[in-house]
Amino acid sequence: MELFRVIKPGFFTTVQDLGRHGFLRFGVPISGAMDKYAFTCANALVGNQADSACLEVTLIGPELEALDDAQIAITGADFSVTVNQNSVPLWQTLSVKKGDKIAFVGSARNGCRAYLAVEGGIDVPVILGSRSTYVRGGFGGIEGRALKSGDLIRVLEPHLPHETNLVTPSDLIPSYEKEFTVNAVMGPQEDVFTAEGIETFFSSTYTVTPESDRMGYRLDGAVIERKVMSELVTDALIPGAVQVLGSGKPIVLMADAQTSGGYPKIATITTAGVSRLAQARPGDRVRFVKVSLTHARAEFLEFNRVLSGLAARLIGQPF
């Protein structure tokens, strides 16, 4: 069923689900929603399964016309959103009627990405096991690209009719600041760096540069010293890996990370950390905290527990 017509596409709006798993060895990135928490919450608010496809909105949001009645929810970055020019709240279920115009006004005040979930989930072809858009590869989502004006967005039939108006309790709504602190496990190539270089990385504040996207965040800040400048043999990369370039500046790999590379990796950010960092925007600051693998594992298990328990913690109330 066609549900939305795109009036304005926004800066960079793509269809994303939980990602394309099992194809790294073919050079295919994982992709998927950058902020897993906001994404999961959006789906839960409309009664979707956790991996239903949503729209991922970046910095400047789209304007959409509803072609039918539907339940939607918007979570993530702190946008002003209107339906027919009336302000609507984020982080709760919204009912829209045929002909309604949903508009993201201006740019996000804090945070970088918002998620728009619709009951049933967005209907695009499943490519290599996922509906996620991978723009560089030109596949997934809508024709492998970001939305453009005039696009028609289809949705799947809901599994069960979803009649509840759900609200996210305030203690579950994150506030996005200008400074992000993320945990990272050392390595796997920390031996390439001097002790001072490693100290610099964990004690400095880095700034997110405008050359940052779904593939990676290029950071500016203190130069990380290496023992030798020899080239490494290419090995595999995953989201969260922190590569240090020849310039001594770090790049954090994100959801669309290339699958291999030859720059040394000083540390790897935790899964929960990568998800939170997805809300950092150019100009925001990042600090890295060294944690043990035991600590990182506990954080992963806790993050997973929070995500799988989100749906049960939403509060139902009458429309």
Binding site: A236, I238, A241, T268, T271, L293, F300
Partner: peptide, 9 residues
């Protein structure tokens, strides 16, 4: 060597 909380090299 560990590579983050869910991979090893």
């Amino acid at each position: 060597a560990p590579m983050g909380d869910r991979a090893l090299l």
